[in-house]
């Protein structure tokens, strides 16, 4: 199998920068969301369409990122 429809994009989720990497492997779309800095993976999801895989990754990333609190310094 070879990777098809590879793409990357940045977006904001719950007020934080998120980097999405999406590609198709066989009949399955894979998506990875990372937190840009330091680039730690927040979610890896799959779906039958790009939209499905990405929406699952964004949903999971939002769950995790919404727990990150900002403190007054």
């Amino acid at each position: 199998m070879r990777v098809e429809e590879y793409g990357e994009r940045d977006l904001q989720v719950a007020g934080w920068d998120v980097h999405l990497t999406t590609y198709k492997l066989g009949d399955v779309y894979h998506c990875k969301a990372d937190n840009v800095s330091p680039g730690a993976g927040l979610a890896r999801t799959t779906g039958s369409t790009r939209e499905e895989a990405e929406s699952k990754a964004i949903e999971r990333a939002e769950q995790l990122l919404s727990r990150t609190r900002r403190h007054a310094v």
């Binding site: 934080w16 920068d17 937190n35 800095s37 330091p38 730690a40 927040l42 990333a61 995790l64 990122l65 727990r67 990150t68 609190r69 900002r70 403190h71 310094v73």
Partner: peptide, 18 residues
């Protein structure tokens, strides 16, 4: 770490366990 972790604004990288 990131500047925000250094200052104490956040306790961990965004989305990771504190």
């Amino acid at each position: 770490r990131s500047p925000a972790e250094f200052t104490g604004e956040i306790l961990a990288p965004p989305g990771l366990p504190e």
